[in-house]
Structure formats: C-alpha cells, structure tokens
C-alpha cells in the first residue's frame, strides 16, 4: 500500500469527493479494526487507469461511534456500510441501518468486537494478546 493517511470524521465527505475528482472512482472496501481503546474505519480506493491505490483511515473514539454515509458518492458503499454497522456496532448517520447477515439474533454484542468472547470452553489454551 502506497499512501496511508488519517482524516477527521468532519472532513471525510469532502476528502472522498476530492479523491473521486482526481480519478479514484472505484471504492474497493469499507471496513473497520477494533483496537481496544479506539476503533479505526478504513476506506480503500483504486484508480483504474493509473493503477494506484490509496487507503484513508478515520479514527473513532469508543464514546462516539458514528460515521456519515458516503452512499451518494459511491454506489458500492451501500452494502459495505450495512455490513460494517452490523458487525461492529458503528451507527451510520444519513440512512436506516438494517440487518444484512444475521437473522434472529437478539440482544447480543456486535460479533467482531474484541469484547465479544465466544467458545472459550472449547479451547484449552489461554487467550493470547
């Protein structure tokens, strides 16, 4: 990965619009990583004609987990945002976030956070990290 920079949540929509005007019009993936004291959301962008890739990171504190939607700029962001919201519990403002992957799942933590521990009784070695 060549470029890797941090953005603020307030500048996110403007930064993505600038990248789209420069030629990076292909949004490859939106995902998130849970470091235990903060979370980071990642946006992967690709320029098809010049063969370049770029990665934009947004830092989120644990007390305010929300992001604005980028669905008007990139149409592929629709399902990626739904998956990220369901798996990590990040609210996306500007649209209704519905369930995508898990049906009939009541009142349990979002699965991909580090605080959701499952299956400890099947393992007889201690949890690393």
């Amino acid at each position: 990965m060549r470029f890797d920079r941090y953005e603020d949540r307030a500048n996110l929509a403007d930064a993505l619009e600038q990248m789209k005007a420069k030629g990076f019009s292909y949004l490859e993936k939106i995902t998130a990583v849970d470091y235990k004291d903060h979370m980071e959301a990642l946006y992967f962008l690709v320029d098809i004609e010049k063969n370049e890739n770029e990665l934009i990171k947004v830092r989120l504190e644990n007390s305010s987990l929300w992001l604005p939607t980028v669905m008007e700029l990139f149409k592929s962001a629709d399902w990626y945002e739904r998956e990220m919201a369901e798996m990590f519990g990040i609210t996306i403002r500007g649209r209704k976030t519905e369930r995508l992957l898990l049906e009939k799942w009541d009142g349990i933590d979002p699965p991909l956070r580090k605080s959701f521990v499952w299956g400890q009784e099947y393992r007889n070695r201690e949890q690393k990290g």
Binding site: E28, K29, T31, V33, D34, L42, F44, S76, W79, K128, G129
Partner: peptide, 24 residues
C-alpha cells in the same frame, strides 16, 4: 483482496473483500 493486521502468533484482524459481494 486481504488486509491483515499481524500479531505475534496469529492475525489480529483479517479483512477479506470478495468480488461477488458487490455483484449481488
């Protein structure tokens, strides 16, 4: 595409992009 954050013994986070998710 795979994006991995690596730990000492195993991956800390492995994010996978599949090409068919967006076709759907």
């Amino acid at each position: 595409m795979m994006y991995m954050v690596a730990d000492k013994k195993g991956p800390y986070r492995l994010a996978m992009r599949s090409a068919i998710f967006v076709s759907m």
